[in-house]
């Protein structure tokens, strides 16, 4: 299917543009945004390449990314907000 190849190229071009944003900055947040965007596109790329090569077991990788990729961004939020990763994000810390 040619459409898989077309999609793969579109994703790559989009990744390159996001990388451009990461290189240009100007703030750290722009770079985090670029990293996030590339993460989502990696999920897409893995799915498409899996179909392109006829090996859908690649989808497990896409699942990993979709499940755990946001942990890094939450760590970033916590670091920006509190300067440390020790405490909780919420004050409802569970009952003793």
């Amino acid at each position: 299917m040619i459409i898989y190849a077309v999609t793969a190229i579109a994703i790559l071009v989009s990744i390159a543009m996001a990388l451009g944003r990461a290189i240009l900055g100007p703030t750290s947040y722009d770079r985090i945004l670029a990293a996030n965007a590339i993460g989502t596109k990696t999920v897409l790329m893995i799915g498409v390449v899996g179909f392109l090569t006829g090996r859908p077991d690649f989808l497990d990788l896409a699942l990993v990314y979709s499940l755990v990729n946001f942990i890094g961004t939450i760590a970033v939020l916590k670091y920006f907000k509190f300067g440390t990763l020790r405490g909780g994000l919420t004050s409802t810390q569970g009952k003793d």
Partner: peptide
């Protein structure tokens, strides 16, 4: 576990 620690704090 790390996600849990980020949200609830290390102690919990």
């Amino acid at each position: 576990f790390i996600l849990h620690a980020l949200i609830y704090g290390l102690q919990f």
